Simulated assay, not measured.
Amino acid sequence: MSNAMFDVINDDLGHLEEKLLEAVAAPDELVTEVGTHLVTSGGKRLRPALCLLSAHGGPAFDLAHTLPLATALELIHTASLVHDDVIDKADTRRGAPTANAKWDNKIAILAGDYIFARAFHLVTEGGYGDHVSGRLAWLVGNLSVGEIIQDKEMYRASRDEADYYNRIQKKTADFLEICCELGARVGGMPQDEADALAQYGHDIGMAFQITDDLLDISQTSEQIGKPVGSDIRQGIITLPVLRALHESDDRDELLAIVTNPSMTDKDVERALDIVKATDGIAFAKAKADEYLAHAKAILPASLPADIKDAYEQVAEFIGDRDF
């Protein structure tokens, strides 16, 4: 993610990188090696950045108090991706080898568990209280529920938009909402303003996942750091595909491909061609833009100008990103 939009918290993010490395260090050399690989393999740092921005927006900002929470949020995200990569049998993420590819599934799963544990240890040490701990526990549970729902729906091609929005809310939007909410809470922000930032987080989260789904169809493997058409290969119906299943004259052929667990590379290419021949990409882009417009409109007027500007730049980045 562009550093320019986070200039206001640039020093904070530098401390975050140090804290991440400290958090994954362990007496065992292999555990430290795996953890270090995972937290240094790229990543936008969007979740901790949103937490830090929200905390800066409150009257009681204290970096030393906020940093363990921001670090824990990034660790939870990292751990969930490690487990996702095992489930998806992914070889690369962000252009780097996954833990399961570099080591094996057993080490990857246990490393993910270790990182989850380190995240909650930081939260306990931070003394944030029951609300923060409870929200984070709920988040991890909800991430799992979202993955279970997604797995259950693989190759089933539900044509219900509501199902899609419910799935991406659990997968992404709830996480960004909590980052904004908890950052505002530890920064001492009034409840109504914290609620507004939580809604902002929800909206950009929905837009972020829609955009991510778009990139899987419209970009190259080199740009997104993983094979293009991965969602189709896994039987996951995203919004552009959903639109094509409603609008394309070739909807029956597309349906046959996306519900076939044995689809070939040629099948995936054909499915991508069918989707691109419809307005599916434009339709999904318009939905993402709607969420982003609402996100910017709901930002509290009382936010410091530089913090509000950073939030607006984040929304614009999500709408324009191509990786």
Score class of each variant (00 low, 15 high):
Tyr155Asn: 03
Arg251His: 01
Asp231Phe: 00
Gly187Thr: 04
Arg118Lys: 12
Ala244Lys: 01
Ile148Arg: 09
Ser248Asp: 00
Arg243Ser: 05
Leu292Gln: 13
Ala4Asp: 14
Arg251Ile: 00
Leu239Asn: 06
Thr98Ala: 09
Asp309Ser: 15
Thr40Tyr: 00
Asp252Lys: 03
Lys287Asp: 02
Lys285Cys: 00
Asp151Pro: 00
Leu53Thr: 13
Lys89Glu: 15
Pro97Arg: 02
Ile204His: 05
Val275Ile: 15
Ala26Pro: 01
Thr238Ala: 04
Ala184His: 02
Ala137Lys: 07
Lys308Met: 12
Ala64Cys: 05
Gln209Ala: 11
Val82Tyr: 01
Ile236Ala: 04
Asp130Ser: 15
Trp138Ile: 11
Leu176Ala: 02
Asp85Arg: 12
Ala301Met: 06
Leu197Met: 06
Ala315Asp: 10
Val82Asn: 00
Asp265Lys: 11
Phe120Gln: 08
Asp174Thr: 12
Ala60Phe: 08
Asp273Val: 13
Ala108Asn: 13
Leu245Thr: 02
Gly319Ser: 10
Gly57Cys: 02
Gly187Ser: 03
Gly280Thr: 07
Lys308Ser: 14
Thr220His: 05
His15Met: 12
Leu30Pro: 00
Asp85Ala: 14
Pro27Tyr: 08
Asp250Leu: 05
Phe6Ala: 04
Ala64Asp: 14
Val258Trp: 01
Arg45Ile: 05
Asp289Val: 01
Lys296Cys: 13
Ala271Ile: 10
Asp85Lys: 13
Ala101Leu: 05
Val314Leu: 09
Thr40Phe: 00
Pro300Phe: 09
Leu254Tyr: 04
Ala96Leu: 11
Ala162Thr: 11
Met189Gln: 10
Ala173Arg: 02
Leu215Met: 01
Ala64Arg: 11
Ala157Pro: 04
Ala310Phe: 08
Gly127Asn: 11
Glu29Ser: 15
Lys152Tyr: 14
Ile107Gly: 09
Pro261Glu: 12
Thr66Glu: 11
Val275Leu: 12
Lys152Trp: 11
Leu21Cys: 06
Leu214Tyr: 10
Glu181Thr: 02
Leu67Ser: 05
Glu153Tyr: 06
Ala64His: 07
Val123His: 06
Ile237Gln: 05
Pro261Asp: 13
His37Glu: 13
Ser158Gln: 06
Asp85Val: 14
Arg135Tyr: 08
Asp85Ile: 12
Ser221Glu: 13
His37Cys: 07
Phe116Gly: 04
His246Asn: 02
Phe317Ala: 09
Asn10Trp: 06
His37Tyr: 12
Ala271Pro: 12
Thr98Tyr: 06
Ile204Cys: 05
Asn260Ser: 07
Ile237Trp: 07
Arg321Cys: 05
Ala173Leu: 08
Ala117Cys: 14
Met5Thr: 01
Gly127Ser: 09
Glu74Thr: 12
Asp216Lys: 11
Leu242Trp: 06
Ala79Thr: 00
Asp195Ile: 06
Ala162Met: 10
Pro97Tyr: 01
Ser41Ala: 15
Pro227Thr: 06
Asn105Glu: 15
His246Met: 03
Ile237Leu: 14
Ala256Cys: 01
Tyr128Phe: 15
Leu215Val: 03
Leu143Asp: 12
Gly146Tyr: 13
Lys287Val: 03
Asp265His: 10
